[in-house]
């Protein structure tokens, strides 16, 4: 999806107004070129060249003293985390340019190229500043990532004497993110229909759900004392027996309590959703849903009957319907 032709022309004329302009006053390095930052950078990069960190070896080298790795060039003028914090009001022309594109739907950005050139090695004590100019903005391009514009900037780095010490060309693509459904390969992969949250199955409950999957409602039974137990447990709380089996419930019961759920709404469930605490005629209670009955017609004492039903694509659940 892209802009109508007229809007696109207007956007592109606004874009071109940025070309050739500096993005703002020169950025000034927060610290002079210094040994601790060099050492940390070399540690991070795994660069063990002695000219960067060993004063004695550096003195004996062609440099006649410590120098900074040339590829640290941009590190000396980076403004820190501040640059990654989005603000309502753009802080410079580059941010204004990006905002202009974001406002037209080109919301994503990716860096695609970076080239640097170096006029001389930097030494501890050098004080850097850098001026960035928007060098060019491409016509609209269709890329694998989406439709967008390439923006090239040229940054010129100068030392305390105003002499150029290096430059950097940086290219970003500012683009409309591709919708997955628009790509041919994923056109037929419709998003999966949300499902209800599954029970986690373990030793103490998996058998119960297996019987439900066969269309029946089981109740755990203690073979020691005959007690019926729900929810199932690994030991009978009445006689401490672990000799446990089950009976199949008749399926008859009545509503002991119930709720009608409105908020929050979870994917995979239909609202308003009635959950009932049903007392089975065998005497145990369980929580499930009440279906086939308007929420306003549910009341405590309502006779109900179990129906083990498929409630979404796969999940079998013993739900209840009014008995009449």
């Amino acid at each position: 999806m892209t802009l109508p032709a007229k809007q696109k022309r207007e956007l592109e004329s606004k874009l071109q107004a940025y070309v050739g302009k500096p993005i703002g006053p020169p950025q000034v390095g927060r610290d002079p070129v210094n040994v601790p930052m060099i050492r940390q950078w070399c540690d991070a990069m795994g660069d063990g060249h002695p000219a960067y960190t060993d004063p004695v070896a550096a003195e004996r080298s062609v440099h006649r003293g410590l120098v900074a790795p040339p590829t640290m060039l941009q590190a000396w003028i980076l403004p820190g985390f501040e640059m990654s914090v989005e603000t309502e009001a753009p802080r410079d022309e580059q941010q204004a340019l990006h905002k202009l594109l974001s406002d037209h739907g080109y919301t994503s950005v990716v860096a695609t190229n970076c080239e640097q050139g170096y006029a001389r090695y930097l030494r501890p004590g050098d004080e850097l500043s850098a001026e960035t100019v928007v060098e060019s903005i491409s016509e609209e391009k269709a890329t694998a990532l989406g439709i967008g514009y390439f923006i090239d900037t040229l940054t010129t780095f100068r030392d305390q004497n105003g002499d150029e010490v290096g430059w950097m060309k940086f290219r970003v693509l500012k683009f409309i993110p591709q919708q997955p459904a628009q790509t041919a390969s994923s056109a037929d992969a419709a998003p999966a229909k949300p499902q209800r949250i599954r029970p986690l199955l373990g030793h103490d409950n998996a058998w119960w759900w297996e019987i439900v999957n066969q269309g029946q409602l089981p109740i755990q039974k203690c073979n020691g004392c005959g007690a019926l137990l729900h929810p199932p447990r690994p030991m009978c709380g009445h006689c401490q027996s672990t000799d446990l089996s089950h009976v199949i419930a008749s399926g008859k019961g009545e509503v002991y309590s119930f709720v009608v759920m409105h908020h929050p709404q979870f994917p995979g469930y239909e609202y308003p959703l009635v959950a009932a605490l049903v007392e089975l005629e065998e005497g145990t209670r369980l929580v499930s849903n009440l279906v086939g009955c308007a929420p306003e017609d549910v009341h405590i004492g309502l006779p109900v009957r179990v129906c083990v039903e498929r409630v979404d694509d796969e999940l079998m659940l013993p739900v209840f319907r009014p008995a009449s």
Partner: peptide
């Protein structure tokens, strides 16, 4: 999670829903 598994498939999985179940019976 096994405990909550007796309630999640029916959608009864927020504090409000649990307390509402007691409340309905109390009101009754």
């Amino acid at each position: 999670l096994i405990h909550w598994s007796w309630y999640m498939p029916s959608g009864l999985m927020t504090p409000t829903s649990w307390v509402a179940m007691f409340t309905q019976r109390y009101m009754h």
